[in-house]
Design a protein around this nucleic acid. Structure first.
Lengths: 208, 208
DNA sequence: AAACAACCTGAGTTCAGTTCAGTTTGACTG
DNA sequence: CAGTCAAACTGAACTGAACTCAGGTTGTTT
């Protein structure tokens, strides 16, 4: 499965779309979306601010694109990590580990996604923005279903006690993504340790 | 312990500060902060938009005030709920239940708090905004410490296995607050059921 | 080398948030 | 009960970042 990439080979050779997304991920990820001037992104790429509108309809359209790409990647990574597992508890562990097997850019993208999640709730006025929003929303539901289905499989096999799989799935997912609110690569605790701690928590939550 | 109230008796009798906060909580909670025009809040209160600046230095100052008040309330409620408990697992359960014993307005305030948490990360230019931001940040740390301390007490009493109490506390807190991202009073699952599910999850995560 | 699409720009517009320069309201004082 | 003062308020003007417009440039293709 091809992982969703910021740099899209579908674009023309002169296209700066990829560069804009990379720059936007850096700025939105470090200072936050609202705190970042759209013109700063243009400066970083080395083009005038109006040139941005050749690639994105608006600043929000760029943000929504980043969010959709990250959601697509998360979903793909979940599928990839769990496809060969048959034993429920191992499948659960693999899914958690996959969620934390990310690069620094992907950490920023997760942070952007979490910080702006509420943007997906209300319709957008422009067409292209709305398309990205709806796509992102569907991916959110898909990721939620990934977890719900994993839990239901384990429950029906008798490996986990039977509980409301949907609510439990949201709780597990909520705990995992909450890490991106506070984790910084420069922090005291390495990500591997956090991953192990969360893995243990999830297993106890679900399988005991 | 007096719970932090939106309507502050310290204000003069003619003051509309409380009414503004109530209106802002409604609008920010339903449509989101960015999606809400500051003038809509004024309309709802029944004053001109410039009158808002008599009470708040800016739209952001109002938001930060709402966030601080909600954090204060959360902290107070945690303290209130756990002060009489001596048995660690019961104390843990009481803390989780307290986190979900909220009114509809408080749910909106939690939603606003969660959606705009990243605002607390970067300094504000104006003095009064920065004061509120720093106060809110300290309350976040206080709430984190509430959980960390509860976990450490339980560990040192031998009631919970010893783990990194800080990271575990953040995980527990992250799971609890993540509920406010998706829960709606109109939804299919009643809050009491969610509360019970999370309570069980937290106990298994921490005490097993 | 002509044609065309992709890519880019400076000047101007918009709109929500904010400031300014006062005016009104009502409680309290002498 | 007239005068005073601070709290509360207002319409008009300002600001700055997102965005639009009306074209200009670049590189590729035939």
């Amino acid at each position: 499965m091809a992982r969703a990439r910021i740099v899209d080979p579908e674009q023309g050779p002169r296209s700066k779309r990829g560069a804009i997304l990379v720059a936007a991920v850096e700025r939105f990820g470090e200072d936050g979306y609202e705190n970042t001037k759209w013109s700063e992104v243009a400066d970083r790429v080395g083009i005038g601010q109006t040139a941005l509108y050749h690639y994105f309809e608006s600043k929000a359209h760029c943000l929504l694109t980043i969010m959709r790409l990250e959601l697509q990647r998360s979903h793909d990574q979940f599928v990839e990590a769990t496809k060969d597992e048959t034993e429920p508890v191992e499948e659960l562990r693999a899914a958690v580990r996959a969620a934390f097997a990310v690069t620094e850019q992907e950490i920023r993208q997760m942070r952007i996604l979490q910080a702006n999640m509420s943007l997906l709730a209300t319709p957008r006025k422009s067409k292209r923005e709305e398309t990205e929003r709806v796509a992102a929303r569907q991916l959110v539901q898909m990721v939620e279903r990934d977890w719900t289905n994993l839990l239901m499989r384990g429950m029906s096999k008798g490996a986990y006690p039977v509980r409301d799989a949907h609510t439990l799935g949201l709780a597990v997912l909520g705990m995992i993504v909450s890490v991106w609110r506070w984790y910084r690569p420069s922090g005291a605790i390495p990500l591997s340790e956090i991953s192990e701690m969360i893995e243990g928590c999830v297993v106890r939550m679900v399988a005991e």
